[in-house]
Amino acid sequence: MRRPRYKTIKPLFVQGPTAVSRVLIAAGLSIALIVADHRQQRLEQLRSTLAVVVYPLHYLASLPDTLGQALQGRLAKEEELRRSNRELQRDNLMLRARMQQFESLESENRRLRDLLGSSIRIGERVLIAELLSVDLDPYRQQVLINKGSATGIFPGQPVLDANAVMGQVVQVNPLTSSVLLITDASHALPVQINRNGLRTIAAGTGLINRLELSHLPNNADVREGDLLVTSGLGGHFPPGYPVARVAEVRHEPGKPFATVIATPTARLDRSREVLLVWTLPTSLLDGALTEAQTKTSAGGGQ
C-alpha cells in the first residue's frame, strides 16, 4: 500500500537501508536484547558502560531532593533538633543495653557451637549507602544506590535497612548500583517462620507492601502476626534477618495451598540509607547449608 510513496521519496531522503528495513532491524535488535537481558542477564557490561553515561543525569535528578534535605537541616528549629537529639540518645541507650546482652549471647552461642563442633561465624562486614532519589520504571520495584563496584559491591549482595531485609543488588555499575526490592514480582526469598522454623519462600507481587508465601499446605502452622526471617538457604542472604510479618492467612476450599500474604517490615518506600552486607564466605556457607539440611532431615521433614 505504501510502496508507491516509497519509490518517490526514497531517492530524496533515505540513504543506505530503506526506512522499513531500518525499523525492522531496530525491532529485531530490541527483541534480541530483551530476550538476552531477561533470560540470561548477559548484558551487564553494556548496562554498566551506559550507566556511566547516565550517571550525571541521575546525579542531577537527585540533586533537588538532596538540596531540600540540606535546607531542611539548616532551617530546623532548635526545639526540633533538641527533641530529635533526645530521642536519638534514648534509642542509643536502649540499643546499647540490648547490645550488652547480645554480646554475651553471641559468645555463648559460639561456645555452644564449638561444643557441637560446628563453626558459623556471625560477624559480618557492612557498609552504609544512600539511595539516589530518582524515579525509575514505576512498574518495577527497584532503587538506585550511590555505591558501585568502586567500593567492592557485587551482584547478589543483600541490602538491609534499619528494620529488615530490603532486597539484593542486581546490577553493579562503577558509581551506582541498582537494588531489586523483595517485593518485585521477579524476586523470591527463602524465609522461615521465626516461631516454629517452618521454611517457605516469600515471593514479591509487584506491590510495595505485599509479599506472598507460596506453596504452603492448608494445614501448615502459619498465623497472622508471625515474623518471617531469612533462612539463609538460598545462599545469598545471611540467615536470621527479619523480612516480613504475616498479614493474612486464607484457606480456600478446593485449593491445595493456603494463600498467605505478608507485609515487609523494612520501610521499602521510605528508607534513605541502606546497609550492604558482606555475607559468609562460600566455603563456610556450604558447611552451614549441609549442616542445616542434615539437621532438618534428622528432625524429620519440615
Binding site: 526506512a19 531500518r22 531496530a26 520504571d137
Partner: peptide, 30 residues
C-alpha cells in the same frame, strides 16, 4: 532524526530507568 536516534535513545533510557534493555528502544524506534 529517525529510527537510529530513537533506538539509541531508548537504550540509554532503559539503562537510566532500569527497565529491560530494549523495552523502550523498541517502542521509540517504531
Amino acid at each position: 532524526v529517525g529510527v537510529f536516534w530513537a533506538w539509541t535513545t531508548g537504550l540509554v533510557m532503559d539503562v537510566a530507568v532500569g527497565s529491560l534493555l530494549g523495552q523502550h528502544a523498541l517502542g521509540f524506534a517504531v
